[in-house]
């Protein structure tokens, strides 16, 4: 049980930091002058730049850890009983974090953020029927200042939701405390804080698109997909499929296959380690990285073809390869 607990405590520490720094940012954030208010926090509020750097770096580390832990669980097939519950909570947490991360990025009001919002809002509002109604409720109309005000609220609510998912995980896993575990936590905390300090003080804008340092401008469209690094693989999948529905299905599907992994693995809990499954999972990991890299390189002429191939492989891996390899093993 302690095994699953280790990542949880790091994630909880980071989420706590994000909540605390987010509260400070929320005090000064002004959705009607989003970009200017972030400049105000950075330049005028006492230690505002520090709080901002904590929030940005906390996000980067949180996604880094969440991706690493899920990938490690996939490699070790930690999604099967008795750990299936931890896996389900992990995927849920990732889904909440992705949405909260996108919202947080959009709130910056920079050039990249502005256009990400315009695209998403226009896409959602163009949908017909119930989906369009949900889009209307979520964005409140075409992207504008009022949109940011409600998205700021959703961003905060999702942050609390992520804390709730973690709390649920704690309750399920019922950690025991002992001196050994405490020392273990201390060591983890120290190393995490070391990595955090290096990033926050020396690379505060790591993985953020540089165009976002410009204010959003309805008249100039930046080239390509400019999103923070942690959204890029998903953006790649969304871009590979045509139209607003393609994007929605791509994003929801990409997370849904992760959640469905315990059922796609046909080998049962007592199966031995499989070399093929390991190799395929590593290839899938590279595929995710390739999706992210290609999503930023949209001006390269082969990008659309590559994106389509990588996105196809993503789903092919879960829907065909994993069931096939694990079923062969089960015999």
């Amino acid at each position: 049980m302690i095994k699953e607990l280790k990542p949880l405590s790091s994630l909880a520490a980071l989420l706590g930091l994000l909540t605390a720094s987010g509260l400070v940012l929320a005090v000064y954030y002004n959705p009607w002058h989003a970009f200017a208010s972030l400049g105000f926090i950075e330049r005028e509020v006492n230690e505002g730049w520090l709080v901002q750097a904590y929030h940005a770096t906390g996000t980067t580390l949180l996604f880094g850890l969440a991706y690493l832990f899920l990938f490690r669980a996939m490699l070790a097939r930690g999604y099967r009983a008795p750990d299936d519950l931890a896996w389900a909570l992990g995927v849920k947490l990732l889904a909440v974090l992705l949405l909260a991360g996108w919202l947080g990025f959009v709130l910056t009001g920079g050039a990249a953020a502005y256009w990400a919002l315009v695209r998403a809002a226009n896409g959602a509002l163009a949908l017909s029927g119930a989906a369009g109604a949900i889009g209307m409720w979520f964005f409140g109309g075409p992207a504008g200042e009022g949109t940011l005000a409600r998205l700021a609220l959703f961003h905060a609510v999702l942050g609390v939701a992520a804390l709730a998912v973690l709390a649920a995980a704690y309750r399920r896993l019922k950690p025991k405390m002992s001196p050994g575990v405490c020392l273990d936590h201390l060591a983890r905390f120290a190393v995490l804080a070391l990595i955090f300090s290096v990033l926050a003080f020396f690379f505060p804008h790591l993985g953020q698109p540089a165009v976002n340092a410009l204010p959003g401008d309805p008249l100039t469209l930046p080239l390509g997909t400019a999103l923070p690094w942690y959204l890029l693989p998903l953006a790649g999948i969304a871009d590979a499929l045509p139209g607003a529905w393609g994007g929605i299905i791509g994003v929801v599907g990409a997370v849904a296959v992760l959640a469905a992994l315990p059922w796609l693995d046909g080998s049962g809990p007592e199966a031995v380690r499989s070399r093929w499954y390991g190799v395929l999972t590593w290839v899938w990991g590279l595929d995710v990285i390739a999706l992210g890299i290609t999503a930023t390189a949209r001006d390269c002429p082969q990008a659309s073809l590559l994106l389509a191939l990588f996105a196809l492989w993503y789903f092919f891996h879960f829907l065909v390869l994993v069931p096939l390899v694990t079923a062969m093993e089960a015999k």
């Binding site: 050994g180 020392l183 273990d184 060591a187 120290a190 190393v191 804080a193 070391l194």
Partner: peptide
């Protein structure tokens, strides 16, 4: 935090093991 990491990892090796 480098010093803290070294101390904490050493303590875990020695005491928690």
């Amino acid at each position: 935090f480098t010093l803290l990491s070294i101390v904490a990892i050493a303590a875990r090796r020695g005491g928690g093991g």
